[in-house]
Design a protein around this nucleic acid. Structure first.
Lengths: 133, 133
DNA sequence: GTCAAATATGTTATGATATAACATTATAGC
DNA sequence: GCTATAATGTTATATCATAACATATTTGAC
């Protein structure tokens, strides 16, 4: 059965795409409250997990929040650069780096299944324009 | 003023060290309830953040949980290999890999401050002994 | 078309994680 | 003793996430 693109999935994905910053599940919920006043958190979490399984959204583990996937279909994990000043998240793909990481973890017999790679710091704009200029 | 090693810090650290698996703040709280029946979550979170600032504990972002630092003093971020079967977390240090990651993120002008590197999968013991025998 | 399987959503309740805000106590250095 | 800092107490609340069970919709097989 082909994956259905339901209205709710489209709505949630549109909200994530519209934002520059990660959205919490409850922020998504609040945005949908206008259109679906009775919407429950459970539904949002369910839609988010379907989107994540499909690679259309990612969870930012260190923020308990979610972003739309900005890369084309990618097999290796995303590397997320998170600006702690403006909140913008940049997604980078590096098969090599993820492979290196897997190799390193594998040295002790570990079998990697899912990589979480998140870097907090300041983005270019915030460094340039920031308070030290 | 030298950092004080208060009783509460010692207790929390001892709990984290005693465990093989990450502990949530509330699990730590429950273990301390015997000795400190009135202990509040806030206190535990505060102690945990002092321990983390001192490099004696780490937060496992993808689990909302905490571990004692098992490496000696290290400047670069830990790489955590988390077994989803048995829950054991292994801590690895690789200045090189973290440097590569910083370089990669830096290409777009990003200035890294804190790296979160967590790998979920199966540890050697769980792979070997696991259901595929 | 209808049946069954899979997927999606509704609904209610609750569990789990985390912090704000303000008060009090303990310690170190002088 | 006094002061600054660090630690803890206390109360309340905010935020994040899922369990459990019910209903509806879509799809594919026949």
């Amino acid at each position: 059965m082909a994956a259905r693109s339901t209205l709710m999935k489209q709505r949630v994905l549109a909200i994530l795409r519209r934002r520059k910053r990660p959205a919490s599940a409850y922020e998504v919920l609040n945005e949908l409250k206008g259109e679906y006043p009775k919407l429950a958190p459970m539904t949002v979490y369910r839609v988010l997990s379907v989107l994540m399984a499909a690679g259309q959204a990612h969870r930012v583990e260190s923020m308990n929040a979610f972003i739309a996937c900005k890369s084309q279909a990618h097999k290796s994990a995303s590397i997320l650069s998170i600006c702690d000043d403006c909140g913008v998240v940049e997604e980078t793909i590096s098969n090599d780096l993820v492979a290196d990481l897997s190799r390193l973890a594998g040295k002790s017999g570990f079998t990697p299944q899912r990589h979480v790679i998140e870097i907090h710091g300041q983005c270019g704009s915030c460094c340039d324009g920031g308070g030290l200029g």
